[in-house]
Amino acid sequence: MKKLGLLLVILSGALLLYATVDFPLWGDPSSPASLHVSPRYIEKTMEETSVPNIVTAVLADYRGFDTMFETTVIFGAGVVCFLLLRVLGGEEGDHYYRHLPTGVTIHVKGAKGKSLSGEFERIDMLWTPYDLVIKTACRIMIPFIQIYALYVIAHGHHSPGGGFQGGVILGASVILLAISQNLRTALRRIGEKTVGILCAIGVFIYAGTGALCLALGRNFLDYAALASVLGTDPVTARSHGILIVETGVGIAVMATMIWIYNNVSSAGRYDEGL
């Protein structure tokens, strides 16, 4: 197997190497890729969409359709993880509770649906106390990270970033919460249902914007159609359309990242997690 694999790998490597001979040089400004389609993006983006970040403009407008599906891929991945891992119902088995003031741990066998309220906290077998330093430091950092993430989403037009990156960071902040405390804490802030619906809403904002353009009589995802709704000229409408879309992407990506993390880190049981 190993030898066969090596042979295969070497063969395909050789094939790929063989082709590099005819490649244009790295960084050659006169390579076909730099001459054919892309110049128009560089030269026209500003006047057609008024977005300085060409990548954002191309991503969300010229090739906005790709991006919509890219977001859908992420959404799909979230749904797949949920479908695969989530253990629904079956809350039977042993429960552990901790009495908060005293720290005494109680072990309840076969507790179905019963929950101890008040000063008790549901924990796992693997429960470990919070680490004070990590917990406090993260507590302070999380709002900071979140505002930064929102900044990234909002300023995708002018600087690198955009919905996707901001969404990931936003998701990461919630993941950080789950890591530094535990998953249940994070879930209390942003529950499973919320995540699932946010995920769909995010992508829906994207596709819905496109559909709105369609309903307004232009082609799908032609944000210029939004001009009449937003009351601006078509170019600015494009810019705003991109922002709306990016917001959708951000929401979807954030929710999906949280969703995947929740499922993966607790193997679908939504207990204490990593």
Partner: peptide
């Protein structure tokens, strides 16, 4: 400065 000692500590 906030994160590095935290990370080290962890």
């Amino acid at each position: 400065f906030l994160s590095s000692p935290t990370a080290t500590h962890s």
